[in-house]
Write a protein that binds this DNA or RNA. Structure first.
Lengths: 254, 254
DNA sequence: CGCACGTTTCGGCGGCCGCCGAAACGTTCC
DNA sequence: GGAACGTTTCGGCGGCCGCCGAAACGTGCG
């Protein structure tokens, strides 16, 4: 048993004087705009985008994007790295990603996408995507069900990693950081499937291992975003070792 | 070990057609206004307020409040009960409360409150308050530390209730609903203390038992809100049985 | 050195939206 | 029935803010 040690959850903002109430409206205002929200959703892939990429992604002028990005960085939701004539932007922290993710699950669903390309991308996202550092979509849920079926995760009193899960992950080559304050297994409500998928250190280890080993690949070349597809080797591993049903692996081949 | 059973987390909104992307901006817009955000924060006490009370609380005309409330109810964040000439409003669900709570923890801190009364209330909230259905503030954190010290909660791999915790809670008279899909122990970042306090079914059981037994009372008479104070009996129980340090119980007597 | 490119700053336009007061509706109490 | 009260609807005002284009700045490349 371990005692409670105060993990300093990195605040998204330089800690100001305490004792004052949180300005909920200020935070919400940042995400209350379609363009800024689109930036944050795109950045949920965990990578760094340039300002121009984000502008094109959202369909606004570069000048407009620049102003929005400055405000998001100023509020501490994003961080930037300047390199040459480029401005790279990332989500500030995993906590920020989790917040956006949680809000997405609670948000009303927008009108169906318009245009063939958008529909295609939307379907790809529903099949399988990354959610900052773990898997989501039908694929993420299927993997979650599979490892649960293997007895790797126990959902009694909240999800936890079992002993067999620990060895199973090691056999896959998915390494979990030795000492991390991060919860090993976190349940995360999937907004396409409306069922939980596995996040936390275990979810991240599974996802990064799958990408590293070439079981999954990112789709949509030009910074398209978060969609992932299953490769032939991936199909073998996921179906064979984990027992993921075939129909959940029928994503757009890579 | 229990298998994963899909808890249908109540959506905050009538489920629309699936496959479409979440409209993050639409949700954020609802909370992006000081007045509407103030309503939601006030309703975090878990009780039902009348439209007029909320209007006075936020300092706007009743007509203004009425419009805001209609939009919040329409979006599914709040639910209403009409009774006579009153319109009672509550947060729609515990999930909604958790979302607002999570956003509050990430939100920047507003300027210190102005006015003697506001300062007083702010201090009371920092000392101890309810967070929908569990305890927060210095009091909530102190209780969390205390039960951890008693070995009731194990923080390894995420918080979980121990066997001794189960018996300890029973001895206190705090009953946990027999079968609940709700996580027994959930960690919730406190926005005043920046340290976690205990939520989930256990947090709710502790809080409701303490209020029911008269160990804690709600302060601030006229719908003032969420602040709670420790009574004399409460002091005895919390210090004696749980070992909460005295200095954390020095709240405004009730 | 000069051009191309990514980015930023500034001015200005337009629309959205939060606010109020006045008036109306329904309920409760006398 | 009449008065008081909580709430709602409507019209209109004002401010905020997201957008763009033009111009400027800095970097990298030929």
């Amino acid at each position: 048993m371990r005692r409670l040690a105060w993990s300093v959850l990195t605040t998204t903002h330089p800690t100001t004087s305490q004792g004052t109430e949180p300005d909920l409206a200020a935070l919400a205002s940042l995400l209350a705009d379609r363009t800024r929200a689109s930036f944050c959703t795109a950045l949920l892939d965990g990578r760094a985008w340039t300002a121009g990429e984000l502008a094109r992604h959202a369909g606004v002028a570069p000048s407009t994007a620049s102003e929005h990005l400055t405000s998001l960085v100023g509020a501490g939701l994003l961080v930037e790295v300047r390199q040459g004539r480029h401005r790279y932007l990332r989500l500030a922290s995993r906590e920020t990603a989790e917040l956006i993710e949680a809000m997405s699950a609670a948000a009303p669903k927008a009108a169906p996408p318009r245009g063939l390309k958008a529909v295609h991308r939307s379907n790809a996202l529903a099949r399988g995507r990354t959610c900052y550092d773990h898997l989501a979509g039908a694929l993420g849920v299927a993997v979650t069900e599979a490892v649960t079926g293997q007895g790797w995760i126990d959902w009694e009193d909240g999800p936890s990693l079992t002993a067999s899960g620990r060895t199973g992950l090691a056999a896959l080559g998915a390494e979990i950081p030795a000492r991390t304050r991060r919860p090993l297994v976190r349940s995360c409500l999937d907004w396409t499937e409306r069922r939980p998928h596995v996040a936390g250190a275990v979810g991240a280890a599974l996802c990064s291992r799958a990408l590293e080993a070439g079981w999954l690949v990112r789709l949509g070349g030009t910074g398209g975003g978060r969609a992932v597809g299953v490769t032939a080797e991936g199909r073998a591993v996921l179906a064979g070792t984990l027992g993921v049903p075939d129909e959940d692996l029928e994503s757009a081949g890579a």
